[in-house]
Design a protein around this nucleic acid. Sequence first.
RNA 1: GUGGGUAUGGCGCAGUUGGCUAGCGCGCCAGAUUGUGGCUCUGGAGGCCGAGGGUUCGAGUCCCUCUAUCCACC
Length: 376
Amino acid sequence: MYKIICKDGRAKRATFETVHGTVETPVFMNVGTAAAIKGAVATTDLKEIGCQVQLSNTYHLHVRPGDEIVKKLGGLHKFMYWDRPILTDSGGFQVFSLAGLRKIKEEGVSFHSHVDGRKIFMGPEESMQIQSNLASTIAMAFDECIPALADRKYVENSVARTTRWLERCKTEMARLNSLDDTINKSQMLFGINQGAIYDDIRIEHAKRISEFDLDGYAIGGLAVGETAEEMYHILDVTVPHLPENKPTYLMGVGTPVNILEAVDRGVDFFDCVYPSRNGRHAHVYTKNGKLNLKNAKFELDDRPIEEGCQCPACKHYSRAYIRHLLKANEMLGMRICVLHNLYFYNNMMKEIRQAIEEGSFKDYKKSMIDRLTIND
RNA sequence: GUGGGUAUGGCGCAGUUGGCUAGCGCGCCAGAUUGUGGCUCUGGAGGCCGAGGGUUCGAGUCCCUCUAUCCACC
């Protein structure tokens, strides 16, 4: 159940109830593709970080260890020791990112495993079955993520197929939720809007999928090659055509600035690999811009990553020490950076929620963007 | 002491019958990365080729001397 507490412009402060607890939105979901946040971050760390929802991936868990195995072990929550909400991505993005080894047909997509090369077929039913086995809180519909520069004809056909796939997803999900041996019989389903950067296709598709009465609606296929301005424009025209009484999720986005802009356009849910991937690559976020801790200028820098930051890294470690760990390829270096970045993202979301409640979101957004882009 | 080998950017090496504007890997210095293959990619800095002399139009490549270092034998 999604409940709006208050609005500030188009920015929404809401709660989303699930069988695994209530989510306070706007929220950033931490990406743990293979049932783990890369960078040696444990689920026990995530509570300290302020993480509400963890994201995992259907495709990756299907190829390894196998969703049947996760099911036999009691589902993802028990498997990775996490009792809060989990959202599983459907595998649709892998169809896009593993392009070259794929074949898309009406029934679904066949492509090759990146682990052992074997051929895998995944369609709406397979994706729902896998996600049901994983027993996540929220399952994502199986869609095709279209490159931003795809031509109009291709986009029209693809989006029409994604709609047909959504219908099959909904039917299959209802069937699975009614089975006796299903672990999470209350599994929710989010649909995904597509349409590349064609306003009319986006709007038509948004209206069309809104008729399905799903638990939430995502906007996919953004941040895949178009400019930030184009992305904001698509949000401007699309979000108003999605149900206001359901959460809106912008998939795979983005930078702190992207998130501030999207919240301002009514988006509730986000996920992105940036905090973890950038952390592994020594890029850390601060309110005064991003730092690359591998840079030589930090060799003797005794300060924490960010003064006053309450994350587990900043309480104890200096930039110089972290730089040393990163240069020496010590796992701890990555771990510290990832922890800091996840804290930064989750903390920013917390401040965003406060600002909306206080009716000061516009001011907060402006001051944040001014500072965040100092180094850009 | 004798015989043999080796000396090329921070480290490890390529450099063919002399034609180089001297390359490569790692490292170093930076930059990319948006529903994650701890990956990958893109730039950049850095060498009078151990020292001295000779042959030649031309030497990192050939010759001589020296120095350093390694191996074997005394």
